[in-house]
Design a protein around this nucleic acid. Structure first.
Lengths: 144, 144
DNA sequence: CTAGCTCTTAAAGCCACTTTAGGAGCAACA
DNA sequence: TGTTGCTCCTAAAGTGGCTTTAAGAGCTAG
């Protein structure tokens, strides 16, 4: 199978597949005599697993851990579950953050509609609302 | 005020402030005779607005639009409200995505606990669950 | 044989910064 | 007066996870 076929079946673009190979998520692919990469079904499975894990918001390093748990000797259950639990917590936290953000932004819009409404204020209330000092922390831990 | 004082009051680090200046979110700061940047309260306000807008998930370009609406002639209400509405929609969509992700991951964990449970399977069910082809779309539009 | 696709590599670009390197200044204390 | 330890400056490189570009080679259908 060519790289683009493997890509279509797994949902990764050819450059992404080459990138994954370059960072060691995939073993170097076999090559035709002319130097083109060839892939088989196990490669497609691995690529699909990688893409889905990325879709779930896992970092490439977490995917790496997941793969080494899958490749390792045992059933890999404990490390895999740990990674998923970690991601669940991260997603939950992010959801809470976003819920708060949504509420705040909606309130800003409402106030704008109420006060700036028909006549037009000197300056829209949105600017005041955004510029209140608020929580001092830039968001660091993103559940992507 | 020195750059680090302005940073403390606005919640931006000095390198970030210099970066904002370099990309034109801030006019070049005034300098002391020795070449050090000095800031006043209007700069702190502007920086606070920028940081808060970034905390709300706006991109730097959206912040740029917001600032030019604020700097512009009118009250800036319409463009500002449009940006906030856009962001509200993005956040809402992202929340829906994350809710789905959370459900899926939780189901994977539950199945792992049920099937891999005590005896240990040959291979953890999580790997099967992740590697099902699933939706083919990598997440592009992120409400950060 | 040629047109238009895919493949190859290496390098640069993206976003929004952060970090590092190397050098200079400034404030406080002995 | 020194000197210690902070802050400041610039320019450049690093981060993550790719995507895009450039320049060239090969493959396939008409």
């Amino acid at each position: 199978m060519t790289i683009s076929e493997a890509g279509k079946r797994s949902g990764c673009s050819p450059p992404t597949i080459r990138y994954y190979e370059s960072i060691g998520l995939l073993a170097p692919a076999e090559r035709t005599p002319k130097g083109r990469r060839t892939y088989g079904w196990p490669d497609v499975s691995r690529l699909t697993l990688i893409r889905r894990a990325r879709d779930f918001g896992l970092s490439v390093n977490q995917v790496r851990e997941l793969l080494s748990a899958a490749d390792g000797p045992g059933d890999g259950c404990a490390p895999a579950a740990a990674i998923i639990e970690e991601q669940l917590r991260a997603i939950h936290a992010r959801r809470t953050e976003l819920r708060l953000l949504e509420t705040t932004l909606q309130a800003m819009l409402n106030r704008c509609n109420a006060t700036c409404g028909p006549g037009g204020a000197a300056s829209c209330s949105i600017f005041e609302d955004i510029a209140i000092p608020g929580p001092g922390s830039r968001t660091k831990g993103n559940a992507s």
